[in-house]
Structure formats: structure tokens, C-alpha cells
Amino acid sequence: METFIEIKPGRKPFQRIYLGIMLWFVGKAIQAAARVDNEVKKEFKGMPANYTFSLGAFPNGPYMIVGKDDKEKVRYLGSNISKHHVDLEITLKSMKNLFVLFTFRESTPIANSRDRMIVNGDLPQACAAVRILDIVQVYLLPKPLAKLAIKRYPRWSLKRHTVDRLMVLIRTITGI
């Protein structure tokens, strides 16, 4: 190759599909946990009405958006960020960074401490959102994986570990 060439940005279809599924799952699980888990309920209660937050990758996603509706009900609002006003954006600097996060090779606090994450929005709410994500990860993941994803594995009651977890999983899948 001796001449100048222009290279259009390629795509990463596999990562996009994988992340799409994972984000959908997390989004639905947040919705479910907000109905089941008292701590998650409390965190959402502290957020203003109609508050929304998103998790995604720079510059073109994929994303997931979760928010409260007029009736204070927490809903998964899909993946199209242009359709919603988002109050708090948690964005990974690239899709690969998000992929590394969702394949549990880097935990959220580590990704954050390695400058891979940007948070735009009010800090107290951002803290609440991260705590919600942590709780949801504990619900969704088996203990060894969850330990990789969060800082300190919580000491929950047996009910929370079994009954509540089952309820979160059922509600996540059925979407009720």
C-alpha cells in the first residue's frame, strides 16, 4: 500500500447484539427489582419525579434507559436514547469498554477508576443509580461473578437471596 487511503469506521455486530441483550436484561431487572426490593425502592424514591437515567457507550450506544413515570412507577424505557429526555447519563468511553464491563473482566468501580466511564448528571442521583445497578447485579449474577462486578458482596437475608431473587428473575423475564 503506497497511496493514501481513507478508512470508514467499521462495526462490531457481535458486541452490539450481545450488549443489546445484556442491557435489555439489566433494564428489565431494574424495573423488576424496583417492585420487589425495598432498598431499590428507597433509592428510586429519593429521585425526583419523571427522573430517567441511561447506561451506554460513546458515541452511538447501545443504551438502556430506565426512569420513573408520572405515577412514580419505575419502567424500563427501551434503548432509543433520542426518544427520551435523560437526566443522568452513565457512558462508557467506547463500546469495547462496555463489552469488557459486561463480560465481567472489569468491575464497575475499576472501569470507573480507570477513566473509562463518564457520568453526566446530578451526583447524588448518580450515586443512587450506581447502587441500584450493584443490587441488580447481585440479584442477577451467581456469587462468584457478582464478586467480580461489585466492590463488596452484601450480607443479605436468606429471603432476599432466595425468594426476592426468584421474584426479580420472574418479573424480569415476564416483564410484569
Binding site: P109, N112, S113, C127, K151
Partner: peptide, 13 residues
């Protein structure tokens, strides 16, 4: 303090 962003860089939760 629970709403302060610096809490996330703390080694222990």
C-alpha cells in the same frame, strides 16, 4: 455522604 461521588473511588464499599 451517600450522595457524594468520591465514595466510588474508595477501596472498600
Amino acid at each position: 455522604a451517600m450522595g457524594d461521588g468520591t465514595i466510588f473511588y474508595n477501596p472498600e464499599d
